[in-house]
Structure formats: structure tokens, C-alpha cells
């Protein structure tokens, strides 16, 4: 498999170099809106992963069958189909998460990351690299969502609950609580409310840029 290092670099690029939030500055709306807790951040990230993976695979498969004249409607139909599927699946199997994410699941359809990857990557590359690209971008996105969600939950409610998606005892898929961490500070509700989201992402973006600059200085 001579392809392997290539695929891995496509995957890795999505996490740091092409990080959708900090570097490409795309998909900001859900990044801020649903990150009131670690759990919601993870849930949104997973829903996003499903849509991006599905649309990337299908758009890449159909790339030679897509007449340029109807390219956009076909992209939209494919993306919207996957969004609707995950929307109704969440509603049935993970109702608490469905309520928490609200209209931001259907809004994945206009998430600039998905249509951006379709246009810039999947419609030009074969299936395997497109999968690697989708996974890399998704992991990068999930990490950011969990980071922001975690920070806001910790400062806003004074505790953070780490969860993961797992098969629960009652045979259903759901969030399994791993650990809860309390910090001895007075919770600042403002962090849960909208302004907290802006301040968190602003500070993180400053840090990310600052570290990037320091690193490139050291290298140069």
C-alpha cells in the first residue's frame, strides 16, 4: 500500500494545518451555539462527522457522473439527505441530544465546512482520500467543539462531566458518563450564555495564532 502515508497526511492535515475552526475559520455558528457543555459539543461533532463522511463519499463516487451544470443542486440534495437522516435518527435514538442541539442539526446543511469540502476536495479526489479528508476535518472539529464545550461547562457550572458514546446497559446507544470533575470556584453563568462563547473562542483563537507564530519563529 503505497497510498498509506498519503492518506495519513490527508487525515492529519485536517486536525492542525486545515483545522476547520481555527485555521479555515469555517462552521463558526454551531461551534458557538451548541457548546454549552462537553456532551453537546461531542454530540454535535459526531452528527457533523456522519454528514461530512457521507456527503464526501457520495460526492466523490459521483464526481464523474455529475454534469457541471447541475453540480450545486446535486451537492445540496446529497448533503441535505444525510442531514435529514441524522436529524430523524437523533430524534428517535438520542432525544436529549436532539433537544439540546435544536435547529443546529438541520443547519449543518449550510455549514460552510461541508459544502466547502465537497467543492474543494471530494468532487476532485477519489473515495479513499475523500474519506481520510472527511475524518481528519471531523476529528479536528470534534476536538475544538469538546474543548470549547468543556471550558464553558467548567467555568459556567463549576463542574465538567466527561462522556462518551457507548452501548448502555439497557441496550440503547447513549452517553456513558466517565467522570465528573468539580472545581472549587463560584460558577460564572455568563460563560454558558452567548457572551461566554464569544470570549472563549476569541481567547482560544488568539492562543492558537500566538503559538503558531512562536513555532514558526523558532523554526525560521
Amino acid at each position: 500500500m503505497t497510498d498509506r502515508p498519503n492518506l495519513f497526511s490527508e487525515f492529519a492535515a485536517g486536525i492542525i494545518k486545515n483545522n476547520p475552526v481555527f485555521c479555515l475559520v469555517l462552521g463558526i455558528c454551531p461551534t458557538l451555539a451548541v457548546t454549552t457543555s462537553f456532551e453537546n459539543g461531542l454530540g454535535m461533532g459526531l452528527a457533523f462527522t456522519f454528514v461530512l463522511l457521507g456527503s464526501n463519499v457520495f460526492i466523490s463516487l459521483l464526481r464523474n457522473q455529475t454534469p457541471p451544470i447541475v453540480r450545486l443542486p446535486i451537492f445540496i440534495v446529497i448533503i441535505a439527505t444525510f442531514v435529514t437522516i441524522i436529524d430523524i435518527v437523533l430524534q428517535a435514538y438520542l432525544p436529549p441530544l436532539y433537544e439540546a442541539l435544536g435547529i443546529f442539526v438541520p443547519l449543518i446543511v449550510v455549514n460552510c465546512i461541508v459544502i466547502g469540502r465537497a467543492e474543494a476536495y471530494a468532487s476532485k479526489n477519489s473515495v479513499l482520500p475523500s474519506i481520510a479528508d472527511a475524518l481528519g476535518i471531523s476529528v479536528g472539529y470534534i476536538l475544538v467543539l469538546m474543548l470549547i464545550g468543556g471550558i464553558r461547562e467548567l467555568l459556567g457550572t463549576g463542574k465538567i462531566t466527561f462522556v462518551m458514546l457507548w452501548l448502555l446497559e439497557n441496550g440503547q446507544i447513549g452517553f456513558l458518563e466517565l467522570a465528573t470533575l468539580h472545581i472549587p470556584i463560584e460558577p460564572a453563568t455568563i460563560m454558558i450564555l452567548p457572551p461566554g462563547a464569544f470570549f472563549t473562542i476569541g481567547s482560544l483563537m488568539f492562543l492558537f495564532k500566538f503559538m503558531g507564530k512562536k513555532m514558526s519563529e523558532r523554526r525560521g
Binding site: P73, I76, V77, A80, T81, V83, T84, D87, I88, P106, V109, V110
Partner: peptide
């Protein structure tokens, strides 16, 4: 349940 796809189109 088709609202998203219809609205965006």
C-alpha cells in the same frame, strides 16, 4: 421531516 431539504432547495 423533509423540511430541511425543501427549504434549502
Amino acid at each position: 421531516f423533509l423540511q430541511t431539504i425543501c427549504f434549502i432547495l
